[in-house]
Design a protein around this nucleic acid. Structure first.
Lengths: 266, 266
DNA sequence: TTCTCTTATCGTCTTCTGATGTTATGTTAT
DNA sequence: ATAACATAACATCAGAAGACGATAAGAGAA
């Protein structure tokens, strides 16, 4: 794996940035004490503890008396706070591309991906619209939009993803059928889409069954990685959208395997 | 009906307060022009329009060229912003009383009532806890609590109530069964609980079927009023909690009809 | 067209929340 | 029991968000 993890730590609140850095630090060192972090980041003990509490709430680290230890990296990578600051420009481009597929009056389903969140910000001008999602930040933003019929997909709350999942959520999805689905995953091979967590896979699979046109949003970072669970073959998606930075030699294999790939212009 | 509507307009942001006042004004006059409101409230036209937009989004008024008209009062009264500022002290007392019924480890269901919201603020000390609710403000607060398993009840978003409802929500409720249910209604007669809106009734009925112990929270303002839909007989609730300000001669009839009534101390 | 009402956009000001450190109190190991 | 660590409880400060009005552009009625 190339080590360019797009540390897009810009445009992020100071504490959130520091927490991301602390998370990285902890992951790197395996386990550290609060005092280590005080020295490493130049803030007070209190602040370190607060940051660690938050990271623990998100499931990124485990606290014990005397320090903290890291969770498996998979958890770290699927953590929302982390994802929110990765490849933001690419996601915005993907969102703009996706937006063009939506006509007023349509019903749209969104999964708990930050790419989908970028799309929400573009909805204001495509009203009326019906939107279904299990992603809390998306829900919050959508409540403020007029002429958007919001269908919240409930379920078990996951602090790591800031979304709802599990069986109740899958059942809620089953009961619907939308015109469009926009979703994302943590990894994409030439033939399949992958995701780390089983419960999430459960919900995404249900979503795939509940939409007419299915769109997969992929920023180029996803293409060189793998993840535990195979979600679905790429041919299950009507369109796979990748960002402009994606090297051609990574796109071609997807097409060779039958996927419809579109490139989103920055 | 006595006219003491507990106009608890304190502790409320200026625009929110003004909007509440404008709403009352519109309801009183039936229909008014923007300019009328400019004079009545001493703010600019622009601000009046912004307020009216917000009130329309909440479903309280209808805008047309040249002015606005009021919606049926029922809508006004079940509006969240309005309810949030009514009888806050009473609700806090009800919440404290309710809290005593909860043991760590229990599963609790909450409806979209402001009384339930007051209860959420007391959860921090009763963890661990499983909480299911369709009320967005409650959901938002609960996501921040550790050791609370949050089950969001999704459904169709209603800006008026700031909650989720309709069939999808009722179905989500059916799939659960909790130890406790805390809910509220818009009116209580000596024998029955009432509510204005049908979709809400749908959900509350489902909730009543999905909990072992059912608790109705009633502030004294509810007892002298009526509403369109009969939700359920009071004997369907295991406990009816009223606040201390409730006159005894209003409590006695409930007991005479078989309800178990408890009084929450301020 | 012309007038009136409504919306958009921008700049300013206020208000509020959120972040942080300090001190004090509680807790757990040794 | 004591020392190290963790949490709780303020107080302060800064940055962000919100509220507001003025002006200008847009939309609908007459």
């Amino acid at each position: 794996m190339t080590s360019d993890v797009d540390g897009d730590t810009t445009e992020l609140s100071r504490p959130a940035r520091r927490q991301a850095e602390i998370a990285a630090y902890v992951v790197k060192h395996g386990s550290v004490s609060a005092n280590d972090l005080v020295e490493a980041f130049g803030v007070s003990v209190m602040t370190v503890h607060r940051d660690l509490d938050e990271l623990e709430r998100q499931g990124v680290v485990r606290k014990y008396r005397g320090g903290v230890s890291a969770q498996p990296t998979s958890v770290f990578e699927s953590n929302v706070a982390y994802r929110l600051n990765t490849a933001t420009a690419e996601k915005a481009a993907l969102a703009r591309h996706a937006r063009a597929m939506i006509e007023p009056g349509m019903s749209v389903m969104l999964d708990d991906s930050t790419s989908a969140l970028a799309l929400v910000d573009l909805f204001e001008d495509i009203t009326p619209l019906t939107v279904a999602t299990n992603f809390l930040p998306a829900i919050s933003r959508l409540t403020e939009l007029r002429d958007v019929t919001l269908l919240a997909l409930g379920g078990l709350y996951s602090a790591t993803h800031d979304s709802f999942g599990g069986m109740p959520c899958a059942e809620a999805v089953e009961a619907l059928h939308t015109d469009l689905l926009f979703c994302s995953v943590s990894a994409v091979s030439p033939t399949h889409a992958f995701h780390q967590e089983e419960e999430i896979v459960l919900v995404k699979r249900a979503m795939l069954r509940s939409a007419r046109t299915k769109v997969l949003l992929v920023d180029h970072g996803k293409l060189q990685r793998t993840a535990l669970h195979r979600l679905a073959p790429l041919t299950d998606f009507d369109v796979v959208v990748v960002d402009e930075k994606t090297p051609d030699d990574l796109i071609q294999p997807l097409r060779d395997n039958g996927a419809t790939v579109e490139v989103a212009k920055l």
